[in-house]
């Protein structure tokens, strides 16, 4: 079989006439902004806690005597790893940054050097489920943070815009985390029959619910990415006394 890459019927990288580049460009910019901000915040090592509010970038707060850098570094590898190995994000950054391919029927890199996810480092993408386990635990802590933020330092019950925003963030993170492809497999997708035993029937119900979340995994991914960044920005701004937490009562 001849290699058809250089054919007269298909000159150039693509014959597409639409704005196929717009999507990867937006993704590249979107991720770029978030990564820059997150990196800055990780190393800033300041303004992450104020009163009862703790930034999701620094939670759970791991303070050890022997650790002299930002505590965020000890925890952020979990959500970062979870997202980096996420099936949706993989698609997005392979397209936007690696150009394999930049768009459908658009040639990015070519030749036979490509090995996909069969070799190091990309073979590590297969560890996605381990990141899921860890991320689920972190998410539990974030829910704890959000709930205790309703208790003012003096012990009184209080509601603030920031607390509500933290809850919204946890909600979006939950939708993202529990719509995970690996979880969808683990909770029931691995089974080939859903109807024989009671356990299978239960698995089917969970799988069915996860599938519904999974159908919009991309939406949950972006929404929760923004919400987690904005929650941190909110807390930073409150801690730096730029804006108030917006106490309602």
């Amino acid at each position: 079989m001849t290699n058809t890459i250089e054919s007269k019927a298909h000159p150039g990288r693509t014959a597409r006439t639409d704005n196929w580049w717009a999507n990867p460009l937006m993704v590249a910019v979107g991720f770029g902004v978030f990564i820059a901000y997150a990196t800055f915040r990780t190393f800033e090592n300041n303004y992450f806690e104020v009163d009862q509010y703790l930034s999701p970038f620094y939670s759970p707060k791991l303070a050890f005597d022997w650790w002299h850098f930002s505590p965020a570094i000890l925890i952020l590898w979990i959500p970062a790893g979870f997202r980096a190995t996420c099936y949706y994000y993989r698609k997005a950054y392979y397209r936007a940054y690696f150009m394999t391919p930049p768009g459908c029927a658009v040639m990015g890199t070519s030749g036979t050097g490509y090995s996909g996810e069969t070799k190091f480092p990309f073979i590590l993408q297969n560890m996605h489920r381990y990141f899921f386990y860890c991320a689920a635990l972190v998410l539990l802590v974030l829910w704890y943070d959000a709930i205790i933020s309703f208790r003012a330092p003096d012990g009184r019950f209080t509601v603030s815009l920031l607390s509500l925003f933290m809850c919204l963030n946890c909600y979006l993170l939950s939708g993202y985390t529990f719509g995970c492809h690996a979880w969808r497999h683990l909770c029931g997708g691995a089974v080939s029959c859903f109807s024989k035993t009671e356990q299978q029937k239960a698995q089917f119900r969970i799988w069915h619910f996860v599938t519904k979340l999974n159908e919009h995994h991309q939406g949950w991914a972006w929404a929760s990415l923004f919400s987690v960044g904005l929650t941190d920005l909110y807390i930073r701004s409150v801690a730096a006394k730029i804006i108030p937490p917006g106490v309602l009562f």
Binding site: Y87, R90, K91, Y94, R95, T100, P101, G103, C104, A105, Y114, S115, G116, E117, T118, F122, I123, H181, H185, N214, E215, H217
Partner: peptide, 25 residues
């Protein structure tokens, strides 16, 4: 493992099969 789930197969499928999400992943 050669598949890097960039989903173009799903995008062009005329039968709307969710190839990547429901089969490959």
């Amino acid at each position: 493992g050669m598949c890097n789930i960039t989903k173009c197969c799903t995008e062009v499928c005329p039968e709307d099969i969710h190839i990547t999400d429901n089969a490959i992943i």
